[in-house]
Design a protein around this nucleic acid. Structure first.
Lengths: 202, 202
DNA sequence: TATCAATTTCAGAAATTTCTGAAATAACTG
DNA sequence: CAGTTATTTCAGAAATTTCTGAAATTGATA
């Protein structure tokens, strides 16, 4: 049924799934759908991956909750059919958005909460509190950048990516032409870039 | 021993660890070291997190294999002392590099291998083979961009991030001034951006 | 070399996650 | 409505991962 290439790809994604905190079956089903031109119904997935019907049902639910798999229907057939989006950039955007939502956003909330809590206490802030603040700032910078990029059309995004660090050379030139609103101030300890020696244990 | 803020942060990182395919203890130890101004020895970690000595030993090994934790020594004390780098950008760079090495690079190798294998077979390439090729190209674009960014000094990198999509406006202007080597051609199906209707199941 | 402290290893216990089959539910069909 | 098909739920089985305590190892010191 599946070519050896397909098999190989599907197994690889299963393995990789684990490293990503996604379970093997979910990874395999995703990979199968990704490679499949036609939409597949649950029974077809059961056959091709030799897993139980209930496992397929639950794994598809999981993939749908990630918005990585779409459900569709066919005239004269009341089974559900599943696909992944054709456009890879749609997939990348979904993946990044979902991971951000599940992993970054809660962490950012937590850091803000902790900092408020800690700031109410003794001044000056202790080391741990300062560290939490640094981390929060870093994440805010990165997510702000992400929001910016996410707003771009794919066409533009690809252009920027392909340019890569060539852009860096433009900054100087551009700065003199266009007044940038946001200042490019490092939010971390990069203003003390010297390598510190081993910290003293108590 | 630990403030409630520290406790909270450490537990949060433990939880998050799971979602990242990193185990709870490893996440907690990392968080503890991250918040700790002084380097800590294994016994101190045992006390503060109430976990077994052997667990600490193994988890530290894991963190060292990720290069996220450094080992150091103190005069007149033969125990090992552990820290995280002070500079957050160093941490980010390490994290990204390690994840790339463990997750992206093997996948890229696999995709190349599969494509070669498939290309030896029947022409024209079938849908699955084309899909694998698309994915490979996308990952190559992204890792190429990453390599570019990674070469930048932190100072410059932060500037670029802070600019965000403002750069986008520069492309047009810049293109007319500087001849770009690499063409910004989308590697995906973004040249057929129309939304395709539901694929036909068999 | 014997002793001691620090660390690592590892077999199995404990905990957690994944997966299944059976039963329940839902949704259509005649 | 009764019968049929598709899907979901869920308790517990199976598999995997994590964690521990005991023993082994390492390496410094007397």
């Amino acid at each position: 049924m599946l070519s050896s290439t397909e098999q190989d790809f599907i197994y690889h994604f299963g393995e990789m799934g684990s490293k990503w905190g996604i379970n093997r079956t979910v990874g395999q089903i995703y990979a199968l759908l990704f490679l499949s031109e036609d939409a597949l119904n649950a029974e077809q997935i059961v056959e091709r991956l030799s897993i139980s019907r209930s496992n397929v049902s639950m794994s598809l639910k999981e993939l749908q909750s990630w918005e990585l798999v779409r459900i569709g229907h066919v005239a004269g057939d009341r089974r559900d059919y599943f696909t992944t989006p054709d456009d890879l950039w749609t997939i990348v955007r979904t993946l990044v958005e979902q991971r951000k939502k599940r992993e970054i956003d809660p962490t950012l909330s937590k850091l803000r909460e902790l900092q408020i809590q800690a700031d109410r206490g003794a001044e000056p802030p202790d080391y741990a509190t300062r560290r939490i603040g640094e981390l929060r700032e870093l994440i805010e910078l990165l997510t702000g950048w992400y929001d910016d990029m996410n707003r771009l059309e794919t066409e533009r995004l690809v252009q920027l990516l392909a340019l890569g660090s060539k852009l860096q050379g433009l900054i100087g030139k551009a700065e003199s032409i266009i007044p940038f609103g946001r200042t490019a101030k490092s939010p971390t300890s990069s203003d003390t870039p010297k390598i510190k020696p081993m910290k003293e244990p108590r």
